[in-house]
Amino acid sequence: MTIAQIVFLVISATTLVASILVVTSRKMVHAALWLVLSLGGVAVLFVLLQASFLAVVQVVIYIGAIAILIIFAVMLTRRMMYDTGSPINRYWWAGALAAVLLFAGLVVMLGQIPSITTQASALPIPEGELLSLLGTALVDVNGYMLPFEVASVLLLAALIGSLVVARPMERKTEEGDKR
């Protein structure tokens, strides 16, 4: 085994254990922290695949923004210091079934790729160029410009929608204004 393989095994094991603990830990904040660990594990997997841009973006977006937002929301809920109720409700089997089915589907689908057992060769472009190729492909008319623009419009709509939802109700009366 090479060092990269050992690192891969350790990191994937950590990620898996952490993601199981996300759904089983009794404290909400602990669950959120385990989520951070598993997301960090995914970032390390990206590093192992030499996708440094994706790794860094994973940390910025998922750990730096989403996980912190989740922790923030959890902390703002009441009694978060001693929220120790059981995280398992009576539909746990449905969730487990869905997870197993999804995993099995992924395994079957990946097994049908013919080159799955051979080691992939490195891309014939230097690593520094990958990022700029990705960037140009996203704004290239022959590349992925349309999906990119559609996604941008969707995100903008979501942004405006969240603003509309979060806006306080229009206060009509003078008395309402006083409060």
Binding site: V36, V56, V57, V59, V60, I63, G64, A65, A67, I68, I71
Partner: peptide, 10 residues
Amino acid sequence: IISVGSIGTL
């Protein structure tokens, strides 16, 4: 730099 900084926030 940004991503490492966000770990500090955490």
